[in-house]
Design a binder for these strands. Structure first.
Length: 600
RNA sequence: GCCCUUGUAGCUCAGCGGUAGAGCACUCCCUUGGUAAGGGAGAGGUCACGAGUUCAAUUCUCGUCAAGGGCUCCA
């Protein structure tokens, strides 16, 4: 059997903790078992909290010496012993004073802090005769209900007490737990699957991009294949924007630091910015955002209400200082290109403009097979600027557009930016993960700071409404998400190398070259495998590199001006004439199809 | 930035106090082979970087940088 590089279907559905009360008990109890095991092995460890997660559980400890991965083995073994003893878990309702006395007797400072925040009735759960934990439950009746073959300790990590980085650093141990060993195996298989899809892995294997140590962390090098894909994405994006009534801008990468003072970024965004640079007598700042440039472009002349709405988009490359340790492949980098756009419009145009943006967003995302969205509407926070009337108008504009689009959404009350309400959109990928990409934000701040105006019908000067929006978010991040979504099996139109020609013998090289030249003229990306290996090897290499179509060429094909096609997605397509393949490939490119279709 | 782990050939990884190894990839030779690995030979490494311990460091210790898993923060 050849090793499989194609999609594996998921046979077993795994329950989520939040949807399975019994599993919730198992995981919750498992965290107590782990805490007991840890305190048996490390008597100095102080307990804090230990909740369930969607795939398992964790527990945070304060231990004088950080746990190492090696400790996990011993802890797991100890847990196994506790499970084997079938220890009962019992709920006890106690008074605050009783709980406090017990906690003090055990010298558990964090528990004391937790207790202070608890409301009556106060409950604790005992595990066996000696160990207990403040807990609301629920739990299994005894540890015999836990399957010692269906759990695993996964990793240790640092975590902050109460999630606050100014507070104590705790040691978190993550575990996973299931009802059956089969479920555990399936969970581990899925983790493997996510690993197989990892864009960093695929990016290296398929030579799409790299991040070079010598250049610095978080700076992306797009290699020819990745750059070709990015170009195809950008080309599509540009045409879609022109069609949607946008104009495109190019703006500088640096600007006088005073611009960033005016925009306010120097005040509230400085810690995310690269440091300034001295040039002649002026200080310059690398741009972390494109907005001020678009605003300056708007302000470069007096605008009439007749010009509005103005829709300007730019693939704008920005640089942001990200703290060491937060960079992650293409998902989180220091230099990236936003598909940024700003719409300047009249107050009564908000609803229409937002709806147009939602339509364009759907058009663009669905082209990459992202069709499930989760939408959040964030409204006015406590600390904010602007008048109530403007906030109401803007928020209602967003709601009106969402309703007209027919998209359901959740409201994040008070979750908006200080300068305006916003819509965030998350996309779901092939293995069910959600990713935030698109955002649409109203901005009452920048127009004010830059004193933007237009001349209204009555001759008065008015402030335009400004809308920020990005659909991909950043090209880098989107590229990473898309790569994981396709697991590197890109649709035909997007594949950097679409057709690989595999000559069976040297005699047919001339024919292959003629085809390649013809394809190149027709905008079809093909290469010839000249390695001289046997066909089996050529097929193997082509499959491993996830080339959509492999075209075998032998004497027979050369004589009849045809190719023998093997498609990654569609399987064996048999012998197809050169002309038919060319037509089908051009058609797929034009319509951005994943597959080839042959008319005859 | 913080906690844990890691850094050996282009890739995936062994190794270890006495100055390096495998498979794949690469180059050359033989093979002209029809749908997932034909055979042979060769080349390739300041063992991330800097200090320390030692007669001797890729190996032990410390620091720096980077990566991975998390926390915090975020496109």
């Amino acid at each position: 059997m050849p090793e499989s590089t194609t999609e594996v279907q998921v046979p077993l559905t795994l329950p989520k903790t939040s949807e399975d009360p019994e599993l919730l008990k198992i995981r919750h109890s498992m965290s107590h078992v782990m805490a007991m095991a840890v305190q048996q092995l490390f008597p100095a460890a102080k307990v804090t909290i230990g909740p369930w997660t969607e795939t398992g559980f964790y527990y945070d400890f304060d231990n004088p010496v950080p746990f190492s991965e090696a400790d996990l083995k011993a802890i797991k073994k100890e847990m196994g012993k506790i499970i084997a003893r079938r220890l009962p878990l019992q709920r006890l309702e106690v008074t605050r004073a009783e709980a406090e006395a017990k906690i003090i007797a055990n010298n558990e400072p964090y528990k004391l802090e937790i207790l202070a925040g608890l409301e009556e009735p106060i409950t604790l759960y005992t595990l066996g005769d000696t160990w207990w934990d403040l807990c609301a439950g629920p739990h299994v009746a005894h540890t015999g209900e836990l399957n010692a073959k269906a759990f695993e300790l996964e990793s240790v990590a640092g975590a902050y007490w109460r999630g606050d980085e100014t507070k104590a650093q705790l040691q978190r141990i993550y575990g996973t737990a299931w009802r059956t060993p089969e479920q555990l195996t399936e969970y581990q298989r899925r983790k493997q699957e996510a690993l197989r899809r990892d864009h960093r892995r695929i990016g290296k294997d398929l030579e799409l991009f790299s991040i070079e140590d010598e250049a610095g962390a978080g700076l992306v090098f797009w290699h020819p294949r990745g750059a070709r894909m990015r170009l195809l994405i950008e080309d599509f994006w540009r045409v879609a924007h022109f069609d949607a009534g946008y104009e495109l801008l190019y703006t500088p990468h640096v600007a006088d630091i005073n611009l960033w003072k005016t925009s306010g970024h120097l005040d509230f965004y400085a810690e995310s910015m690269f440091g300034p640079m001295q040039v002649d007598e002026r200080e310059y700042q690398l741009k972390p955002m494109n907005c001020p440039f678009h605003v300056l472009t708007y302000a470069s002349k007096l605008r009439s209400y007749k010009e509005l709405p103005i829709r300007w988009a730019e693939l704008g490359t920005v640089y942001r200082y990200e703290r060491p340790g937060v960079m992650h492949g293409l998902m989180r980098v220091r230099g990236f290109t936003q598909d940024d756009a700003h719409v300047f419009c009249l107050p009564n145009q908000i609803g229409d403009e937002i709806l147009k943006i939602l339509n364009l967003t759907e058009e663009i995302l669905s082209t990459f097979d992202f069709t499930n969205y989760e939408i959040n509407l964030s409204t006015r926070p406590e600390k904010s600027i602007g008048e109530d009337a403007v906030w109401d108008l803007a928020t209602n504009g967003l709601i009106e557009a969402l309703n007209r689009k027919g998209w359901s959404y959740k409201v994040d009350e008070g979750g908006g930016a200080f300068y305006g309400p916003k819509i965030d959109l998350k996309i779901e990928d092939a293995i069910g993960r959600m990713w935030q990409c698109s955002t649409i934000q109203l901005d009452f701040n920048l127009p004010e700071r830059f004193d933007l105006e237009y001349v209204a019908a009555d001759g008065s000067r008015q402030r335009p409404i400004m809308i920020h929006r990005a659909i991909f978010g950043s090209l880098e991040r989107f590229f990473g998400i898309m790569t994981e979504n396709y697991a590197g099996d890109f649709p035909f139109w997007l594949a950097p190398e679409q057709i690989r020609l595999l000559p069976v013998t040297d005699e047919v090289i001339d024919y292959a070259e003629a085809i390649q030249a013809e394809f190149q003229k027709a905008g079809i990306r093909s290469t010839i495998d000249r390695s001289g290996e046997r066909l089996g090897k050529l097929i193997r290499n082509g499959e491993q590199q996830k080339i959509p179509v492999l075209a075998v060429i032998g004497i027979q094909e050369a004589e009849q001006q045809s190719l023998s096609l093997r498609s990654r997605r569609q399987g064996d397509l048999g012998i197809v004439s050169k002309t038919n393949l060319l037509t089908a490939a051009q058609e797929a490119n034009h319509n951005r199809n994943a597959d080839l279709t042959f008319t005859e």
